[in-house]
Design a protein around this nucleic acid. Structure first.
Length: 207
DNA sequence: GCCCAGGTGGGTA
DNA sequence: TACCCACATGGG
């Protein structure tokens, strides 16, 4: 039995794939609590759809997402994203993300404002792609346990994690929750992760 | 008042 | 290629 079974299901709370996409951009270098406020404002203004967000100006969009910080920058990035989604699939997020992982990932990375972490978050939580997200938590934990020296590139860490964990959508999605569980319950992931970084985490210092 | 957060793009050497 | 910096709000 995988410890993932006990993990919370709310690392990326969202009511729709598009909300995941928007959150992925809004959370860049930003506390999630601020993203929640911005998303609530978008919902209240009925602008949390590709078509309706596309229909407003940058100033209005920036004003709505102000609580998330760097709002002018993020308004431009959301604009680039909705334009792409519209061109790609008339705003159907699932359809836009369908297809071969590496191909879709490259297409996402070509969009202004979408870097590797944002792309992987979208692929994993808005799509059905088994693409591991390397975020600040992942780096912090691996470094704390001296499993990396800190200089590795994003792609190096992603490849390392995916090779050791194995292709498992649910484990990828629950990874951060898993770390919490590992810390609290001293459990080990053995079924499919023998030898992986999770296995090596000292139970009292996972976070 | 200060520091940081679930990054990315642009500029410079 | 390899750094350095702007972006900006809200919470501890």
């Amino acid at each position: 039995m995988l410890c993932a079974h006990y993990g919370p299901q709310d690392w990326w709370p969202a009511d729709s794939p598009f909300e995941v996409v928007v959150g992925a951009i809004l959370t860049q270098n930003t506390a999630w609590s601020n993203v929640v406020k911005a998303i609530a404002a978008l919902k209240k203004a009925r602008r949390l759809t590709v078509a309706s967000m596309r229909a407003i100006g940058d100033d209005e969009l920036a004003d709505l997402i102000r609580p998330a910080g760097t709002f002018r920058v993020k308004a431009r990035r959301l604009r680039a994203m909705v334009d792409w989604l519209w061109a790609e699939s008339s705003g159907d997020v699932s359809q836009a993300l369908s297809g071969d992982l590496d191909t879709v990932r490259q297409r996402l990375l070509a969009i202004h404002g979408v870097g590797p972490e944002t792309a992987d978050s979208i692929l994993l939580y808005a799509g059905e792609h088994r693409s591991f997200v390397v975020d600040a938590y992942t780096r912090r934990i691996l470094r704390r346990h001296r499993m990396i020296n800190g200089g590795e590139s994003y792609d190096t860490l992603r490849t390392m994690m995916m090779a050791s964990v194995g292709p498992d959508l649910e484990i990828y999605r629950e990874y951060h929750a898993l770390l919490v569980q590992l810390a609290k319950q001293h459990c080990r992931v053995r079924a499919r992760c023998t030898g992986c970084p999770l296995e090596l985490l000292p139970h009292d210092e996972a976070l």
